[in-house]
């Protein structure tokens, strides 16, 4: 993408979401969309994170609470199943972990530099009532 300076941008700028015409984006799945370079989908805010959420498929009940409350469109759900976290767009706010209803939680925050496989091996046990 060609970038121009502040004094070269004309008043009234149009930023394209897609590189080709899309009739109605609500009917096209994100993976099938022709995203343009000027769509923030192509950018990353991964460097904002200090903690990252790690997702445990074995405990997840696909309630989609994390999906509906994620402020950064970073919970990927397809066909009513939660399939993963978009680490390019997640800012690590931790809302998904707070709203997760399972016991133990199927999403937990770990340090950004931790390995996901290692994090999964340290997953806490189920908490008993009153613990």
């Amino acid at each position: 993408m060609q970038k121009v300076g502040w004094d070269e941008v004309s008043a009234g700028t149009i930023l394209d979401s897609f590189s080709q015409e899309v009739d109605n984006s609500a009917l096209v799945r994100p993976e099938d969309r022709p995203y343009a370079d000027t769509n923030s989908y192509t950018a990353s805010v991964a460097d904002w994170r200090v903690l990252k959420p790690v997702y445990n498929r074995d405990i997840c009940i696909d309630c989609q609470n994390c999906w509906v409350f994620c402020p950064d469109t970073s919970i990927i759900s397809r066909d009513k199943k939660m399939i993963g976290i978009d680490y390019d767009h997640c800012k690590g706010c931790g809302v998904c972990v707070e709203v997760c209803p399972t016991n133990p939680k199927s999403l937990l925050m770990f340090a950004e530099q931790d390995d996901n496989e290692e994090a999964l091996s340290q997953w806490p046990e189920k908490k008993k009532k009153g613990e």
Binding site: L27, A43, V45, W67, K80
Partner: peptide
């Protein structure tokens, strides 16, 4: 919510 989650997102991250 399960049905709601099949929506194609139109507000992008980042």
């Amino acid at each position: 919510l399960k049905q709601f989650s099949t929506a194609n997102e139109r507000f992008e991250g980042a």
